[in-house]
C-alpha cells in the first residue's frame, strides 16, 4: 500500500543542519501493523509526520496505493489526509472544550459527512471502544486510558486506510497501555493498516514487523513471526 523511496529531510536552524531522514526506503502492505523503533532523534517521528503528510521532505518519493503524494499541493495533501489517514498521539491531543462525542465527531465534520450519518458512525465507534457512558464527558474527566481510547476512536471514525500512531502508550501506565495496544491489534485484525512509532519493545511485539531507525537510516527490519503468520 505504501512505498517510500530515498526520503530525505533536513532541519535547518541558523547554526546547524540536522539530517533527520537520510535516504529512507520502506514499504507497508495493506493490513500490516508496522512498528518503527529507534533511539531519540533517529528521525522516527519525522518519518511518521512525513507519512501523515504533516511534514514535507526535501526529496524522495512517497507512493500511497500507486499515487505519488509528495508532488501534491497543500490543499490536495490536506484532502488526501482527511480521507485516508487517522492519527493517534502520545498526549492524546483531544480538544478540552469538546465532549467525547464531539471530539470523535470532528473528523467527520471536516469530511462533510451529513449529521445523521455522523451520529450513527460516532455512536458505533463509542460502542466499539466501550466508552458509551462517557460520551457526554469532557476529556479532563476521563482517565488517561479512556482518553487514548477516545483518541483512537477519533482516528478510526472516518474508516481510514492507514492509522499513524506516535507512541500511543507513552503517557499511560502499563495496564492502560496494554489495553490500548490490544485495541490497536484488534483493529488491525479487522483490517486497518497501522504504522506506530514506539520506544517500547513490549508495544512493538504487538506488531507484524519492526523497522529500526538510526541517524535517519533504516538499519534493520524484523518480522514478528507470532503475529505476521496470521497476516500471510
Amino acid at each position: 500500500m505504501i512505498k517510500i523511496e530515498n526520503l530525505e529531510k533536513v532541519y535547518k536552524t541558523e547554526e546547524v543542519e540536522t539530517t533527520a531522514l537520510n535516504g529512507i526506503n520502506m514499504h507497508v502492505k495493506a493490513g500490516e501493523f508496522v512498528s518503527i523503533m529507534g533511539p531519540s532523534g533517529c528521525g522516527k517521528s519525522t518519518l511518521l509526520n512525513v507519512m501523515g503528510l504533516l511534514d514535507k521532505p526535501e526529496s524522495g518519493s512517497y507512493k500511497f496505493l500507486e499515487t505519488e503524494l509528495l508532488t501534491m499541493n497543500d490543499k490536495e495533501r490536506s484532502n488526501f489526509r482527511k480521507r485516508n489517514m487517522g492519527f493517534v498521539f502520545q498526549n492524546f491531543n483531544l480538544i478540552d472544550e469538546l465532549t467525547v462525542f464531539e471530539n470523535i465527531e470532528l473528523p467527520l465534520i471536516y469530511n462533510k459527512v451529513a449529521a445523521p450519518e455522523r451520529k450513527r458512525l460516532v455512536n458505533e465507534m463509542i460502542e466499539r471502544m466501550n466508552i458509551v457512558n462517557r460520551s457526554g464527558h469532557f476529556p479532563q474527566q476521563l482517565s488517561g486510558g479512556q482518553q487514548q481510547r477516545v483518541a483512537v476512536a477519533r482516528a478510526l471514525v472516518t474508516k481510514p486506510k492507514l492509522v499513524l500512531a506516535d507512541e500511543p502508550t507513552g503517557n499511560l501506565d502499563s495496564s492502560h497501555g496494554n489495553e490500548v495496544m490490544e485495541l490497536l491489534c484488534e483493529l488491525n485484525e479487522q483490517g486497518t493498516t497501522i504504522v506506530m512509532v514506539t520506544h517500547s519493545s513490549h508495544d512493538a511485539s504487538f506488531s507484524n514487523r519492526i523497522i529500526n531507525l538510526k541517524d535517519g537510516h533504516v538499519i534493520s527490519e524484523k518480522i514478528n513471526k507470532t503475529r505476521s503468520e496470521e497476516l500471510i
Binding site: 504533516l54 490536506s78 482527511k82 492519527f87 491531543n93 480538544i95 471536516y110
Partner: peptide, 16 residues
C-alpha cells in the same frame, strides 16, 4: 494554537 493544530491534522482546511 494547539487546538487549531489538532483540527488541522483531523482535516480542517485553513479557511475552516
Amino acid at each position: 494554537t494547539k487546538e487549531m493544530a489538532i483540527r488541522k491534522v483531523l482535516g480542517a482546511s485553513t479557511l475552516e
